[in-house]
Amino acid sequence: MKTPRKGQRLWMKLTLMVLMTVIVTLITSYILLNQQITKSVKKNEEIHLLKVARTISEYPLVHQSLEQKKTSSELQEYANQMKTNYDLDFVVVMTMDHIRLTHPDPTKINQAFQGGDEESALKGVESTSIAEGTLGPSLRAFVPVFSSDNTEIGVIALGVKTATIKLISQETMKPLTLSLIIAFSFGLGAAIFTAYTLKKQMYDLEPKEIARLLEE
């Protein structure tokens, strides 16, 4: 009666030992992959945002509106169109006085830009950052707009909410998560097979019993 219980203890010990190794390895891999993918998604979004902002900064209507420091329905329509075309959360055309000429929320037009991370762009330098605005935390890109005589006349600010970036990262991780689940299943099977094989090679005996037999 005692031998089956001892064999069962050995089975569990061997299975848990192999299984814990597999679990630790998979969890570590998942965390590292998740961090790497999040960084990669953020970097790709920054590059994408800067490219779109440069395109908007060259549009004649944008130049005209910034030089006049005046918004219009045509400018707002163009900003909304670019927002839709490039899956952005906001597109803001901003004057040198920090005043928005466009915004997804019409009530925010002609009000001061929020965040404080636009200062570099107002000094003629492109930049990206994560800051809190009227739409919540977001990844933003800033590109200065220059007139024909190379004088800065405004800034293009656009971006996506950090929640959107998290969703993109999660969607990217889905195939990898499935792969890790499959790997865990194989690892579980390998753990059970390894434990079973070792147990049979030891004739279902506990290590203490084998040592005692050797001594005898």
Rank of each mutant, 00 (worst) to 15 (best):
92 V>M: 13
156 I>W: 06
180 L>W: 07
116 G>T: 02
87 D>F: 01
214 L>A: 08
15 T>A: 07
143 V>Q: 04
66 L>P: 01
25 T>L: 07
124 G>L: 05
166 K>D: 13
102 T>P: 06
12 M>S: 11
181 I>D: 02
117 D>I: 03
155 V>C: 10
165 I>L: 15
145 V>T: 09
138 S>D: 10
158 L>P: 04
102 T>R: 09
176 L>K: 08
193 F>G: 09
142 F>W: 04
206 E>S: 14
38 T>E: 11
92 V>L: 14
105 D>V: 10
46 E>H: 01
73 S>E: 14
163 A>C: 00
4 P>R: 11
173 M>P: 01
60 P>E: 09
38 T>Y: 05
210 I>M: 11
32 L>R: 13
156 I>F: 05
98 H>C: 00
3 T>P: 03
183 A>Y: 06
18 V>F: 10
137 P>M: 15
53 A>E: 07
193 F>S: 14
107 T>K: 13
175 P>V: 01
13 K>L: 09
204 D>P: 02
205 L>H: 08
98 H>I: 01
159 G>C: 04
15 T>F: 14
57 S>F: 12
29 S>K: 05
162 T>S: 14
122 L>V: 02
172 T>M: 07
215 E>I: 04
211 A>H: 06
93 V>L: 03
43 K>L: 01
205 L>R: 14
67 E>D: 03
34 N>M: 05
94 M>R: 07
210 I>Q: 06
65 S>V: 00
4 P>I: 14
88 L>H: 06
176 L>D: 05
12 M>D: 11
200 K>D: 09
216 E>V: 11
3 T>A: 06
41 V>G: 03
145 V>G: 00
18 V>P: 02
206 E>F: 11
140 R>M: 08
67 E>C: 02
109 I>W: 06
154 G>M: 11
29 S>A: 11
210 I>F: 03
179 S>P: 03
76 Q>Y: 11
169 S>A: 12
35 Q>F: 06
53 A>W: 14
157 A>L: 04
129 S>V: 00
88 L>I: 15
19 L>N: 08
145 V>S: 08
185 S>C: 13
120 S>K: 15
148 S>D: 10
134 T>Q: 13
18 V>D: 05
53 A>C: 09
24 V>M: 12
127 S>E: 05
193 F>P: 00
140 R>N: 13
6 K>G: 07
95 T>G: 12
144 P>A: 07
160 V>Q: 15
44 N>L: 03
139 L>R: 15
96 M>K: 15
108 K>L: 12
62 V>M: 06
2 K>I: 12
69 K>Q: 14
97 D>G: 08
109 I>V: 15
114 Q>P: 01
145 V>Q: 03
